[in-house]
Simulated scan of single mutants.
Amino acid sequence: MTLDEALTRLRNTGPERDGWLSNHAPMAVEALAHHGHDAELHRWIDGYRSLLEEAPRGIAPIAPDEWRDPLGDPVRTGDWISFFDRELGLAPWRDVLAVWWPRLLPGIAAGATHGVIRVGHAVRALLAQETPARVEELGQGLAYWAARWQPLVPAGRGRFRGRDPRAALDAVPRVPDQRFGIRNRLAQLATLEDWPDAAGSVPGTGSVEVRLRAIVTAAVLRFTPYGYGNPVMLVHSATAPAAVLRTLPALPVALHPASLAAAWAASAAVTAAYSPATPSPDPAPSATPDALLQAAIDSGDAHAIKFADTALETWELDPDPGLLAAGRRAVLLCV
């Protein structure tokens, strides 16, 4: 089965299930296809398809100049799907993305960052090959992001710009009450005195791409000692900025600085919301690239697959065995 066949099979499924949980199938199959595992797509969908729900129906069409009011309203998800299907039928996908990326970027926390992650997978697939199925999947991702649009607490000017990304993540303050879901946890960022500085201190030096790649690397490596705190949620500290990184080549250069700032804020917010206070003493597991992805596939877990995908993509440019170890840790913890 090819990626386009997989996306066509999933086209009528909704972006969420059970009211809040994200539909990970389009993201997981894109990750598998990206790494050459087309033969696994059919079997993986077979194991996941029963969990999914039908795409929601719309209530009323969204006019192009009246998009602000329904932004962030999950009840309008069906309307957003129709809206982006129409927009992508009228203009090239890069043009639609260039218009909507800066509108959606302030709400990067949408769907526990799954909105931007789904868009990132769709853009990577489109950059590899432009097909109708992939354009439609981009529209699905944009619609999900728009429907669940959720801004983070604003960042400050930042006193620690240029700090090493790993040190910057270690310095992110933790939310005090970690008993409930992500919306409750992110709301607590407003009570943290050090949050504006932490969120505003985008780490690293060099170009936007170099800094963003360093943030992804740091988040992947940090998963090994801290992922045990909440493995499923902490994978997003890496996969959210990775999604922004994948989208950069399709964006106008003028949008790159804001993309970097939002990616860092998302990674820092997930870290603040879910990172445990102390690292695990467990030794880092070993892994090879092929063994890592196969372990993720065998687990059947979408988060394990997506994190392994990010770890491998990062490792290909920086062959640090710690990146593979982090991916293997995620497989062990997410199942």
Rank of each mutant, 00 (worst) to 15 (best):
L7D: 02
L7K: 09
R11V: 14
N12I: 12
E16G: 09
D18W: 07
G19V: 01
L21S: 11
V29C: 01
A31I: 07
L32E: 11
A33V: 14
H35Q: 13
G36V: 01
H37A: 13
A39N: 12
H42R: 13
R43Y: 01
D46V: 10
D46K: 13
G47S: 06
P56L: 10
R57G: 14
G58R: 02
G58H: 01
I59Q: 05
A63I: 01
E66Y: 08
W67Y: 03
R68Q: 11
R68T: 07
R68D: 04
D69N: 05
P70C: 04
P70F: 01
P74G: 06
P74V: 09
T77D: 05
G78T: 04
D79C: 05
S82D: 13
F84C: 01
E87T: 04
E87I: 03
G89T: 06
W93M: 10
D95C: 06
V99P: 11
P106W: 11
G107R: 06
I108K: 03
G111F: 15
H114I: 02
L126Y: 03
T131Y: 07
V135M: 11
E137F: 10
L138M: 06
A147H: 07
A147T: 10
L152W: 07
R157H: 11
R161L: 11
P165F: 01
R166G: 15
D170R: 12
A171V: 00
R174G: 15
D177M: 02
Q178A: 13
R183T: 13
N184K: 04
N184S: 08
R185A: 01
Q188D: 05
D194N: 13
W195L: 11
W195E: 10
A199F: 03
G200H: 11
S201P: 09
P203L: 05
G204F: 00
T205I: 06
G206N: 05
S207Y: 04
V210G: 02
V216I: 03
T217M: 03
F223I: 10
P225M: 12
P225Q: 08
P225I: 08
Y226S: 02
Y228R: 07
V232D: 12
L234V: 14
T239Q: 15
A240V: 10
A240L: 06
L245G: 09
L245V: 07
R246Y: 06
R246I: 02
R246K: 08
T247N: 04
T247S: 07
P249Q: 10
L251Y: 10
P252H: 09
A254Y: 02
L255W: 01
P257N: 12
A258K: 05
S259H: 11
A261V: 03
A261F: 01
A265E: 15
S267L: 09
A268W: 01
A269H: 04
V270A: 00
S280I: 09
D282W: 10
D282S: 13
A284F: 05
P285K: 00
P285R: 00
P285Y: 00
A287K: 04
P289R: 01
D290P: 05
A291T: 08
L292D: 02
Q294P: 04
A295K: 00
A296Q: 07
A302G: 14
F307C: 04
F307Y: 08
D309Q: 07
E313Y: 14
T314F: 06
P319M: 03
G322L: 11
L323T: 03
L323C: 02
A325I: 08
R328Q: 06
R328C: 00
R328T: 00
V331H: 00
